[in-house]
């Protein structure tokens, strides 16, 4: 056998209440939602918890609700359910597009959105769309509920604000007519299918008193998925002319701090960030002109 999982105790929670109770009792645990990241991480020795707390069967946290100005997505909603949801396709097209390009059917049918965010990989593909939408992460513990902005929730590589005994229960994703129509998504990987992001990029426009407000987010270019605040600031009140797009796509360099790893060099990621942003902004400019 090539990979051997370390030994651990296994607990299966039958309700959110039981999961929180078990978490408090066990102490040294990792939550297992779908497990498609966790099992690989256990195999390569990234984590060595005393116990695995399986919350994957909690159907009460698997839902997509179209709730007026926002869409509420249960933490244990599988990526495949998100991909097939007409609510997500119509109201959160950036998320639909990102999930379409994520992993493979075999992974999407098991992996969850809560797992993707909770794992806090710098390459998490659901993060850029959720960041553009200013998503809120709802968590629960025996102490009660918390609501944290996703931008703050992910702290760095594999680090979140989640405290021991606390779990993600829901993503509250504000939707807007702007983001339903004016958006562009780009993902560049080492191959065209079933690939990890070398750089991923989500861009959208919302409207404030008739003029567009641009929101930009990237993954795999910093210790965590980021909003490109300098770009957004620069684009405020501007029309997307060729020269504005040119400048904006250079300014993105101030918002990123990529590293060299097995998938690409830092220099290449910087190059890609500019090229992909230019391309995405051109797509949105075209839609805005119509």
């Amino acid at each position: 056998m090539f990979y051997k999982l370390p030994s651990f105790e296994y607990f299966k929670a039958r309700s959110v209440g039981e999961a929180l109770e078990l978490a408090g009792k066990i102490g040294d645990y990792r939550f297992l939602a779908g497990g498609t990241d966790l099992l690989v991480d256990l195999k390569i020795g990234r984590y060595k918890p005393r116990a695995i707390l399986d919350i994957g069967g909690l159907r009460e946290l698997s839902y997509i609700i179209n709730d007026g100005s926002r869409v509420r997505i249960g933490a244990l909603t599988r990526l495949e359910d998100i991909l097939r949801s007409s609510v997500v396709r119509e109201r959160l097209p950036l998320l639909h597009e990102a999930v379409y390009h994520m992993a493979s059917w075999q992974i999407r049918s098991v992996a969850t959105i809560g797992g993707n965010i909770g794992n806090a990989s710098p390459a998490a593909d659901t993060a850029p769309p959720l960041l553009v939408h200013d998503a809120i992460v709802k968590t629960r513990s025996v102490r009660g509920e918390r609501a944290v902005r996703l931008e703050e929730f992910i702290q760095g590589p594999r680090r979140t604000l989640l405290e021991p005994g606390e779990m993600i229960v829901e993503f509250e994703v504000p939707a807007s007519p702007g983001l339903e129509e004016y958006w562009a998504y780009r993902k560049f990987g080492r191959r065209s299918a079933f690939t990890l992001s070398v750089v991923g990029l989500a861009v959208g426009a919302e409207f404030l008193e008739g003029s567009p407000v641009f929101k930009v987010s990237l993954n795999s270019v910093a210790p965590k998925p980021v909003r490109a605040r300098s770009v957004e600031e620069y684009l405020k009140g501007k029309t997307l002319t060729d020269s504005v797009i040119e400048t904006a796509s250079k300014i993105v360099q101030q918002d990123i701090s990529p590293i060299t790893d097995v998938r690409a060099t830092a220099e290449y990621r910087r190059h890609l960030a500019t090229v992909l942003l230019k391309d995405a902004l051109k797509e949105i400019a075209g839609r805005l002109r119509r």
């Binding site: 296994y10 297992l32 497990g35 498609t36 099992l39 399986d54 495949e80 059917w105 075999q106 098991v110």
Partner: peptide, 21 residues
């Protein structure tokens, strides 16, 4: 993908599933 099984009718990788799951 060589370890693919159908889990409740959808393909899944049996190398990334604990049997307990």
């Amino acid at each position: 993908g060589v370890c693919t099984v159908l889990l409740d009718g959808e393909p899944a990788y049996s190398c990334l599933l604990l049997t307990a799951q």
